[in-house]
Computed example of a mutant assay.
Amino acid sequence: MPHRSSTISVQIIKLRLQIAHAYGIDVEQVLQRVGLTSTFLNRPLARVTVEQDRAVWRELVALSGDTTLGLKFGNQFQLNGLGVLGYILLNSPTMAQALRLFSRYEHLVADIRRTRFVEEADSVAFVFSHAGFPDDEAERYVADWVIASVKVVTYNLVGVLSDSVLKAVHFKYPRPPELETLSVYREIFGDVTFRFNCPDTRCVFSTQLLTMPIIGANPDLLTVFEAQGQELIEQYHSENWSDRVRLEIIHALKGELPTLGDIATKLTLSTRSLQLKLQAENTSFQDLLNGVRQEMAMELLRKKSLNKTEIAYLLGFSGASAFSRTFKKWTGRSPSAFQKQKTPLP
């Protein structure tokens, strides 16, 4: 289960769900199926795990039946979805500076680095890496969302982006046979070169992009927002007890349930102190434990490498029946029904 402890800001998830709502998708049903709540998403420093993020994509596509949803949602991306990071980019003097600042403050939106910038003699590329992630349908949706968002954010920062600046877009997955004309791709990226079956996903720009000024950038505001960004990163590291508890639960959940006392000891806190810290973040140990168990159950059921009895044991249930009842309470579906549900394939 790669990168299980890595997290993504709920601001990104909230923006995506707002777009989904506008598309007529039942957002509450998505949240129920992946074990998230609106209350949790409204916590300023809250994060979701990478697997929860992927689960959200699976449910969105399953409910819509549209495998190009990642591209379409990315095309609706708004800079305010990046929070303070968005304002840092908006007030950078040039695109070159914006790219450097994105790398510096990327932790504001995710604590796993999947992006990098590659500068060559006649081009600069935004690269989205797939190393360590399963090559499945959710990876396509995530990559489509990211790369379409990059094009839109770049457009918003510098104005109209001509075909001479955006040169090519590469995708790791094979060319979708059902999208032979690539009309959705051309509608979003324009008349550029598209390549599939590539080692990574990337937008390739002319080096002209680096010297382009950011429209309306204010150096005084940049100083203010950079200070806010640094403060938020420090605050996240010092105060986000929910993610620390979630990570300890993941490490401890191996056939028996960890208790609040067990986790408090791991974090060198008293039980009462940990309760108060979680309460201040509008959550509880039981909510976090249930969330981790649901997330792991969904992932294990998708992989089909263990049967229900084995999954029940691993997640600390008394037996397969208890696991099945709880899973249906979580998602509205039995484990068997969940496994039978097919997400549209690329």
Rank of each mutant, 00 (worst) to 15 (best):
R4N: 05
T7P: 02
I12L: 12
L17S: 06
L17N: 05
L17F: 12
L17H: 05
I19S: 05
A20Y: 01
A22Y: 07
G24E: 08
I25F: 13
Q32P: 00
V34Q: 00
L36M: 12
L36T: 01
T39L: 14
A46T: 02
T49D: 00
T49H: 05
T49I: 01
E51Y: 04
Q52E: 15
R58D: 15
V61T: 06
V61N: 11
T67S: 14
G70R: 03
G74N: 10
G74S: 04
L79D: 13
L85H: 08
S92K: 01
S92L: 05
P93M: 05
M95I: 13
L99F: 06
R100Q: 09
S103Y: 09
R104L: 06
Y105A: 02
E106R: 15
E106D: 13
I112L: 15
R114W: 12
V118I: 14
A121D: 09
V124T: 13
P134I: 00
V142M: 12
I147R: 09
V150P: 00
N156H: 12
L161Q: 03
S162P: 07
F171N: 04
K172A: 13
P177G: 02
T181M: 13
R186H: 15
V192P: 10
T193I: 11
C198R: 15
P199A: 04
T201M: 00
C203N: 10
L210G: 03
I214R: 04
A217W: 06
L221G: 04
L222P: 04
F225Q: 01
A227S: 11
I233E: 09
I233R: 06
H237V: 02
S242N: 04
V245Q: 03
L247R: 10
E248C: 08
L253P: 01
L253D: 10
E256K: 15
P258M: 13
T259Q: 11
L260M: 11
D262I: 02
R272T: 14
S273N: 05
S284W: 03
Q286K: 13
L288P: 04
L289P: 03
M296N: 06
M298L: 10
E299Q: 12
E299V: 11
L300S: 14
R302I: 05
E310A: 11
Y313R: 15
Y313C: 12
Y313F: 15
S321F: 05
F323Y: 10
S324R: 10
S334F: 06
A337W: 02
T343E: 06
L345M: 14
